[in-house]
Simulated assay, not measured.
Amino acid sequence: MKQSMRILGLVLGFIFLVWSFSLVKWDSFLEAVTSVKPIWVALSAVSLFLSMRLRSIRWHMLTGLPAKDQPKVWEATCIGYLGAAIYPARAGDVMRMLRLQQLTGMGGGLAISSGVIDRILEGLGLCGLLLILLLCWRVGLEARQGLLGVAFLFLVAAVGAAVFVVSGHRLRSLFERLGLAGKWGARLKQWYEQALSGLQVLRSPRRLILALFIQGLVSLLDVLSCWFLIQAFGWALPLMAGVVVLVYIAAAASLPSSPGYVGVYQIATLFALRSYGVDDSASVAYGTTMQVLTLILFIGSGLWVSLNRRQST
Rank of each mutant, 00 (worst) to 15 (best):
K2C: 03
Q3G: 09
I7L: 14
L8V: 07
V11W: 05
L17H: 01
L17T: 10
V18I: 15
V18C: 13
W26H: 04
F29G: 05
L30H: 04
E31Y: 05
T34Q: 06
K37N: 14
P38H: 02
V41Q: 04
L43G: 13
V46I: 15
S47Y: 06
S47I: 11
L48T: 08
M52Q: 09
S56K: 07
W59N: 05
W59L: 11
M61A: 09
K68F: 10
Q70T: 14
P71C: 12
E75W: 07
A76I: 07
G83R: 01
Y87W: 09
P88Y: 03
A89P: 02
G92D: 06
D93Q: 14
D93V: 08
V94P: 05
M97D: 11
M97L: 11
L98Y: 13
Q102R: 15
L103G: 02
L103F: 04
T104S: 06
T104N: 04
M106F: 08
L110P: 03
S113R: 06
S114M: 08
V116G: 06
L121F: 15
E122L: 10
G123V: 05
L124C: 13
L130N: 00
L131W: 14
I132H: 05
I132N: 03
I132V: 14
L134I: 12
L134V: 12
L134A: 10
L135P: 05
G140V: 10
L141N: 01
E142L: 04
A143T: 04
L148G: 04
V150W: 01
A151Q: 03
F152H: 08
L153A: 14
L153V: 14
L155T: 13
V156E: 10
G160T: 08
A162D: 10
V163M: 14
F164C: 07
V166I: 15
V166W: 15
V166P: 07
S167N: 14
F175G: 11
E176D: 14
A181T: 13
A181Q: 12
G182H: 05
G182D: 01
W184D: 09
L188G: 11
K189H: 12
K189T: 11
S197K: 11
G198P: 02
S204C: 08
P205F: 12
R206V: 14
R207I: 13
L208C: 06
L210W: 09
F213V: 15
F213A: 15
I214N: 09
Q215Y: 12
L217T: 07
V223Y: 04
W227R: 02
L229I: 09
Q231L: 15
A232E: 03
F233C: 02
G234A: 06
W235A: 11
L237Y: 06
P238K: 04
P238C: 07
M240R: 05
A241I: 03
V243P: 00
V245P: 00
A250S: 11
A250H: 01
A251I: 05
A251V: 10
S254N: 06
L255M: 14
S257A: 09
S257W: 00
V264H: 00
Q266V: 01
A268T: 00
L270N: 02
A272E: 03
A272L: 05
R274G: 15
R274D: 10
S275E: 06
V278T: 09
D280Q: 12
S281E: 00
G287A: 01
G287P: 01
Q291V: 07
L293P: 02
L297Q: 07
F298S: 05
S301Y: 08
G302L: 06
W304C: 12
V305P: 03
S312I: 13
S312Y: 03
